[in-house]
């Protein structure tokens, strides 16, 4: 499963996000992810992918594409 698919699966299962709305250019705010949800998502990604995102800055202004790139970078490291 690709990084984008992993994140999409987590968003749908844990936040009830509409899969159609999960597009690379969509901001995390548009997906209704507030600061609490972002930190919850960080934990879920870390657990699912076995990576450490502690030094990754996440804000609601970031897009899905930026998140995927950041996670992919960590997963590849």
């Amino acid at each position: 499963m690709s990084t984008a698919d992993e994140i999409s699966t987590l968003l749908v299962a844990n936040f009830g996000t509409d899969p159609v709305a999960i597009r690379p250019e969509a901001s995390l705010r548009q997906l209704r992810l507030d600061s609490l949800a972002l930190e919850e998502l960080r934990l879920l990604i870390e657990d699912r992918m076995g990576i450490d995102l502690d030094d990754v800055q996440l804000t609601s202004r970031d897009t899905v594409g930026q998140l995927v790139d950041a996670v992919h970078g960590k997963a590849a490291a």
């Binding site: 299962a13 844990n14 936040f15 009830g16 996000t17 209704r32 609490l36 919850e40």
Partner: peptide
């Protein structure tokens, strides 16, 4: 309740 409501 829906996932989005229930999770909080």
């Amino acid at each position: 309740l829906g996932v989005a409501v229930q999770r909080l």
